[in-house]
């Protein structure tokens, strides 16, 4: 028989069924009063912890917290509006250069149709995004006020 005691860590793991013990360790426990006592002690201890009553607050947590909550504001995604704004800004800055460029003596006539198209698309995109954002905000506010 192996005289070396089984480590406390192994006994804990065995009682918790986290790992199995080697055969020699099991044989040792059967014949060693010290290890047997530790094993029994841990079994008793873990059962005792499991049986302990769970604590509970002597006040209503929801009633305590709920009046202190402000209406949650969802973070508004401003990225589309910022991008649209930048596009329009770029268009506004670039437009005079195109219209009043010395090389383009004929002014507006020299502006190619595709450029008008690009500027038009930017403008329409900006309007669509702004309107959809306004509508989403309106729906959210209605929801928060429980009108829906």
């Amino acid at each position: 028989m192996i005289k070396e005691h089984v480590s406390e860590e192994d006994i804990q793991s065995y009682v918790l069924k986290e790992s199995a013990l080697e055969q020699y360790a099991l044989q040792h426990i059967q014949t060693c009063a010290s290890c047997q006592a530790k094993l029994n002690m841990y079994e008793s201890l873990f059962s005792g912890v499991g049986e302990m009553p769970k604590p509970a607050f002597d006040f209503d947590v929801a009633e305590l917290v709920m009046p202190l909550l402000s209406v949650k504001k969802r973070k508004v995604n401003r990225l589309p509006a910022i991008l649209s704004g930048l596009l329009v800004l770029a268009g506004l800055i670039g437009l005079p250069f195109l219209l009043f460029d010395d090389k383009n003596s004929s002014g507006l006539q020299s502006v190619s149709p595709w450029l008008f198209g690009v500027v038009g698309i930017v403008a329409v995109t900006f309007i669509v995004i702004s309107v959809s954002d306004m509508y989403a905000r309106y729906r959210r506010q209605l929801k928060e006020l429980n009108f829906e």
Binding site: V65, M66, L69, V71, K72, R74, R140, K143, E144
Partner: peptide
């Protein structure tokens, strides 16, 4: 996050 406090 949609403003429903009761969910909290």
């Amino acid at each position: 996050l949609g403003g429903d406090k009761q969910a909290f």
